[in-house]
Design a protein around this nucleic acid. Sequence first.
RNA 1: GGGGGUGUAGCUCAGUUGGUUAGAGCGCUGGCCUGUCACGCCAGAGGCCGCGGGUUCGAGUCCCGUCACUCCCGCCA
Length: 592
Amino acid sequence: MHTYRTHNCGELRDTNVGDEVRLSGWVHRVRDHGGLLFIDLRDHYGLTQCVIEPDAEMFAAAEEVRAEWVIKVEGRVEARSDETINTDLDTGRVEVRMSGLEVLSEAQELPLPVFGEPEYPEDIRLKYRFLDLRRDTLHRNIVMRSKIITFLRERMVAQGFTEYQTPILTASSPEGARDFLVPSRMHPGKFYALPQAPQQFKQLIMMAGFDRYFQIAPCFRDEDARADRSPGEFYQLDIEMSFVTQDDVFGAVEPVMRDLFEQFSDGKPVTKDFPHIPYAEAMRKYGSDKPDLRNPIEMEDVTGHFRGSGFKVFAGQIEKDERVEVWAIPAKTGGSRAFCDRMNSWAQGEGQPGLGYIFFRDGRQGAGPIAKNIGEARTEAIREQLGLDDGDAVFFVCGLPAKFAEFAGAARTRAGEELGLVDHDRFEFCWIVDFPMYEWNEDEKRVDFSHNPFSMPQGGMEALENMDPLEIKGWQYDIVCNGIELSSGAIRNHKPEIMVKAFEIAGYGPEVVEEKFGGMLRAMQYGAPPHGGIAPGVDRMVMLLCGEPNIREVTMFPMNQQAEDLLLGAPSNVSAAQLRDLHIRLNLPKKG
RNA sequence: GGGGGUGUAGCUCAGUUGGUUAGAGCGCUGGCCUGUCACGCCAGAGGCCGCGGGUUCGAGUCCCGUCACUCCCGCCA
């Protein structure tokens, strides 16, 4: 018989009745009836009820055990009587009649109970993560994460991709997030950086002639945390392919995502064919480049109905600036003054002057101040355009779309959520395509890359030379699920002269490109294949599939919001000798 | 760097207009209990009310500061 166990704690069934078995695990729960004592023994696999009676030799020892002690139990598997079967347990038809018990390891009084699922303070959970991880939901989330990653690897390999590893110690990149730096011992005053993503490496892999790369890639960015963003590190399903168009990338990635979500979504429906939504259309309809398509509300331009109308607040703005538009946010079933006023005061809380509205009642009559001001005919035209009826409402935002789109999108989200129009039990995917290559940086009054500077502009060199930079679109795309951006990707620029020109438009001279991206530029000069890729965020996929709003619920050993590891104590002080080796002298901020 | 929330027993929380000895559940200790599976019953221990200062005859409660955790903004090509 094995030293510790013949079976695991989730294994025993009717067919084992009569077997002499040995189980090891944690004491999940003890129920001491005096004349009869139950121990629920738990391990990774499940829970088995063990029972002992006072005449048994080990009874005194059994009365001593406490929650989370590690014990070894021996005994005979017995069938439970009909009235004592527990259908909630896989092992609930049997129990182990204890004849032997050995304590393998005792536990102090717990700072954090393993039994039950109430919420506990994050700092205690993180300090005692090993206990937290024993708890059922978190334990299952972590296992789910592993299964998801295994699925991704298997599918990628099956589709002809190969996993290659890229360096962890690399060069600091001039664009993007703040880098984590690692001081060089051999080169005083110089630093490595941890990769924000293997972006340049995966393109070099394509240029080196390896086709179809993927990697479950660790990425490091020294940015502040959010609920859905760990401080410091996260994982991407990093993908790159040679000789491909945008549609080839979609064709490779979309089935993997759809099948992944169908397999792990617990029966929730998943989008069959991901719609392709141009960036401009997404902004106009949803006020966001990561729209939640579970929300049925689509915004519409209703500027014409307000031009020259009696609602002077809007009409005046339209008069003054031809770029001013009015967008309507139709809200089915939102047609009550109480709801409209609630939306209005929410908008004021967001720093807006308010949120104008019309709601319809009594035979499609428009109600509210705006309806009064613009009159029946215009009100009816708006109602007609949006297909609204009694009991519905519509909200309006007016101004320059670039300025109000984000707020309009937030109002759309809020109306959809408050009115219960959003179906939470589904996964709605889409591709957002045709992102602008550049955007206007208002602070610095100049043109900036809006996405990835390595992307191929649509129209290539000709577009860069002849078009208004702000009109140029890139072969850049995002994959979005339920309002969450899972990934950005692009068809890359593989021509050195286009790269130089693209950077020139953003204000970087050829010497800057040479200095910062010399390696990439050289690679392009020696035969670079057209290539492209994408990098869906693994953590966010796992969050969606586990239904967890917080990334720490799907991460085994997360840091807290202040980027500290409370279990192992990182970051930590280092010795003077270590600093000397690295040629570093501390220059600490003054206290207070 | 900025804004919001929270902080009372090992843990989750309650605590009235400022007023005697700060409570409950879980856990812990002891006792009882032969079919529980959130077992039940009885008793007990356990508190710098985050920390510092102030107002007051009197502060868990009001004010100021500070610390910790968290959510958000900035940031995240």
